[in-house]
Write a protein that binds this DNA or RNA. Structure first.
Length: 570
RNA sequence: CGGGGCGUAGCGCAGCCUGGUAGCGCACCACCUUGGGGUGGUGGUGGUCGGAGGUUCAAAUCCUCUCGCCCCGACCA
């Protein structure tokens, strides 16, 4: 492609609306333009990248034995009513009516449609397992679309759904898809981790998320430094501390802690390590308020806490007024001693002895409080977030956990029979009996992968595409294309030859100053660059520079095509 | 949805407080200049000041309503 033939819509200034680097760079490089909140047009340059990701996904889905279909974006309400999600889904589901006032929605996902298809078309266990996928625009009316295509309302997703005779078959396909996902993100050229995940609202038993590691990621994930354990921080298990709780040493006493509310303030004021303090959080329980106790330096894991049988769903913290009523004080002085409500302590908090906690009187704390002596023995559970340095919870691993940030680009589930049961999707087994098919579902945010690739690969000058998804492999930059006959002749010839060898080449034939061209090619992230100028041609050479290189390399004109073919994997 | 902020040329912004002919930089067009990291110059094109209503001789500016967008908290690929 010649630059004169493509809409190269680069801009110098950073649009005010863009906060994250990938969003800024996608706008500046002219990859996308916003049409409305969370709704974007993909310009030619951006679309080339999107298509390359799609191609990799298709190839790996085919390799994994999945078949491509294309389902409607608009779906009838009946199907959603049948699965029960028409009422469950809430305002994130974009609902519409046709001219006959019939209800439809714009599909945020396709479990219902595929289950409907499969129950009609698949009758026999001999047709199983079956795995269908599509690559399609989804719409989810997110409360707060953000970060450009990273969290858009309309986004491109690859979704796959597998159907099985039994759970063993489901697990088998799940493993194949797990491996396929790893291959996809490897091929795109991303640093990523599959992590054990909470199944959340979609349901099912087993689930993994695929995270691209990036400091700007919205999710925290815990990774072991020795084994391959990795889990979303929502799920990561905190092991109970080793050893037994020490016996109470000193008598409990009340101290004044005027205006000291947070654990930080209180421990600094009392000159006590936060690990020797306990903090008490009050939430709604199934029959009234309930207290959750954590070691001062730990944070509540709300997902774990919400799973406690004593806790009301969803997890809701008491309001200041309700706290006053339950504990008799303000937030900063709540303590576990003398509470009249059930207490659940985290493992680490339950191991404390002679600790500091609030006295349920404003501006007062207790020193040397002890479980069993000053307060009843609490119910004990794992309700905290793991922290950097926690021991790895994988069996007999001696490693410790590191916390990293990640961007969720894929999520796979063993769904089980949630949808096939509700929609009565059955096949006849060997004995002629109807069996409800267990299902798996597997998603990749294709458009999000593009943004994630940028978050992981950029510098001050712009994007640095991995070869596999670059809109063009190679930038051909003539110096004086419109002035020097020799430069033009060599450039045109090189261009034709490189293209003939299958490389995606962007040749900048604009009558622009070299600085402008270099800046644009760097910004849009073309990973390889050849400069053709009279200076080099005098030596029968052109200059090569990789996007990450500091130095230029002269390449003899005669070797250029072979060198580039060797350098760029196709 | 709750809290904060912003809507003035394609982009980035000033002007608003204290009402009086709508500005700057970039981009774009023309000509000249320059030609290996966003050259320099001259001249131009482009705006119902988000929309509606009100106050006023007069509204980008003051008031009311409304729409849109951005940022901080509960969801997901």
């Amino acid at each position: 492609m010649r630059v004169s033939q493509i809409l190269l819509a680069t801009v110098r200034e950073i649009p005010a609306e863009a906060e994250t680097l990938s969003h800024q760079l996608m706008l500046r490089a002219g990859m996308i333009r916003k049409l409305a909140a969370g709704i974007y047009t993909w310009l030619p340059l951006g679309l080339r990248v999107l298509r390359k990701v799609e191609t990799i996904v298709r190839e790996e889905m085919t390799r994994a034995g999945a078949q491509e279909v294309l389902m409607p974006a608009i779906q009838p309400a009946e199907l959603w009513q049948e699965s029960g999600r028409w009422d469950q889904y809430g305002p994130e589901l974009l609902r519409l009516k046709d001219r006959h006032q019939r209800d439809f929605c714009f599909g945020p996902t396709h479990e219902e449609v595929i289950t409907d298809l499969v129950r009609r078309e698949i009758k026999s266990y001999r047709q199983l397992p079956a795995n269908f996928y599509q690559i399609q625009m989804k719409f989810r009316d997110e409360i707060r679309p953000r970060f450009g295509v990273m969290r858009a309302r309309e986004f491109l997703m690859k979704d796959a759904y597998s159907f099985h005779l039994d759970d063993a078959s489901l697990k088998e396909t799940y493993e194949v898809m797990h491996a396929a996902y790893s291959r996809i993100f490897e091929r795109v050229g991303l640093e990523f981790r599959p992590v054990a995940a909470d199944t959340g609202t979609i349901g099912g038993a087993v689930s993994h998320e695929f995270h691209v590691l990036a400091d700007s990621g919205e999710d925290a994930i815990a990774i072991c430094n020795k084994c391959d354990y990795a889990a979303n921080i929502e799920l990561a298990q905190a092991l109970p501390p080793l050893g037994k709780r020490p016996a109470p040493g000193r008598p409990m006493q009340t101290v004044d802690t005027p205006n000291q509310r947070t654990i930080e303030e209180v421990s600094r004021y009392l000159e006590i390590d936060p690990t020797q303090t306990a903090k008490t959080l009050l939430v709604k329980g199934v029959g009234g308020a309930i207290a959750l106790v954590l070691r001062g330096d730990h944070e509540l894991n709300e997902v774990k806490a919400a799973k406690l049988p004593q806790v009301a769903k969803p997890l809701i913290f008491l309001t200041p007024g309700e706290i006053e009523l339950a504990a008799g004080c303000e937030v900063g002085s709540i303590g576990l001693v003398g509470l009249k409500i059930p207490v659940v302590a985290d493992e680490s908090a339950a191991r404390l002895a002679d600790f500091v906690c609030g006295a349920n009187v404003n501006g007062k704390h207790y020193l040397n409080a002890n479980w069993g002596r000053d307060a009843a023995e609490p119910a004990v559970a794992d309700i905290r977030k793991v922290v950097e340095g926690d021991p790895c919870p994988a069996g007999n691993c001696t490693g410790t956990l590191t916390i990293r940030r990640g961007i969720e680009v894929g999520h796979i589930f063993q769904l089980g029979t949630k949808y096939s049961e509700a929609m009565r999707a059955t096949v006849l087994d060997e004995s002629g009996k109807a069996v409800v098919m267990p299902m798996g579902c597997y998603g990749i945010g294709v458009s999000r992968v593009v943004a994630a690739a940028i978050e992981q690969n950029h510098d001050d000058a712009g994007i640095i595409w991995p070869d596999a998804v670059a809109p063009f492999h190679l930038a051909l930059v003539p110096i004086g294309y419109h002035k020097s006959a020799r430069v033009k002749e060599v450039t045109d010839k090189l261009y034709a030859e490189l293209v003939r060898h299958g490389l995606d080449v962007l040749m900048d034939d604009r009558d622009e100053r070299p600085g402008v061209i270099f800046a644009d090619m760097d910004l849009i992230g073309i990973p390889h660059r050849l400069v053709i100028g009279d200076k080099g041609l005098a030596k029968e050479a052109v200059e090569y520079k990789g996007r990450r290189d500091k130095q230029l390399t002269d390449i003899p004109l005669a070797d250029v095509v072979a060198r580039m073919r060797g350098l760029i994997p196709l």
